[in-house]
Amino acid sequence: ASSLAAKINFKALRRKPSKSFNVRIVTIDAEMEFSCQVKWKGKDLFDLVCRTIGLREAWFFGLQYTEKGSVAWLKMDKKVLDHDVSKEEPVTFYFLAKFYPENAEEEMVQEITQHLLFLQVKKSILEEEIYCPPEASVLMASYAVQAKYGDYDPKIHKPGFLAQEELLPKRVINLYQMTPEMWEERITACYAEHRGRARDEAEMEYLKIAQDLEMYGVSYFSIRNKKGTNLMLGVDAFGLHIYDPENKLTPKISFPWNEIRNISYSDKEFAIKPLDKKTEVFKFNSSKLRVNKLILQLCIGNHDLFMRRRRVDSLEVQQMKSQAREEKARKQLERHRL
């Protein structure tokens, strides 16, 4: 026992626990609490969350918080506590998709990545943040039902089985003189057609429809042009778009990422310099400097992903894709056997 005591580093035992604080991470379907060290940077916390939920395709996601009423994202290279977050514990962050793929089927490999995006997009559609026409709402609802309930079986899925589910945006329901039973019948008719689709496949079908919706993946900001006209700026995976505030579906002008030379701001003035020198520089003002910072952050991130998609996949992504293909094949074989 004495030799064991000699081996124990008493200094280490006496060391005070490192300073830490509690954080609450809210994902689209779960909440978790972590002890975060005061010295941790955004990346340390973000990596811990990704590891905990088993997410490797981390580049689509970020930790969101509210800064003086506007949306902000945790910076990876800045200390967590140096952000303008409420210091009341637990400090809360929302783990959400910050960037969207151009093509979910080609780019999203892991089931968890697809699932988180599916849940987030579904919520945005039901909450009417993304406009979705009635027929697409019904078809997507039928895929959401397939993902949750598996194959349709009239012996199990009796009339009324969807009564408690929120499946359609209220705006869509209000457009028609249909009872809840009629909606269920309509959705079930489509649902019955999806027989054989596994959960991940049904969720991917949902995303494939969603990604053709005009407002999918667009972050909107109120801006004013040099003449003082109110406009909307949209940032997405394809580029920058300028909208009339009355019509967030069809942009008046678009600047694809590969046609932009430079984006910059000084104070509140933002400038988009097109690659074509003959095209005029588009200048606008946003509401706050903080908003400009967020716009630029989204521009840089989306542009990086745009460039990355056009290069050969990194070794890590190649390995992930091949593992995912093997896993999918194994699961399909298993299903066939069953």
Partner: peptide, 27 residues
């Protein structure tokens, strides 16, 4: 360019047609 909702166009058309008789007049 790939048309929007490419492989889903037929299904979407069928759903649209099935909903049409129930559309609110204001809609």
């Amino acid at each position: 360019p790939v048309p929007k909702f490419g492989p889903y166009q037929k299904a979407l058309r069928e759903i649209r047609n099935s909903l049409m008789p129930f559309a609110n007049e204001s809609g």
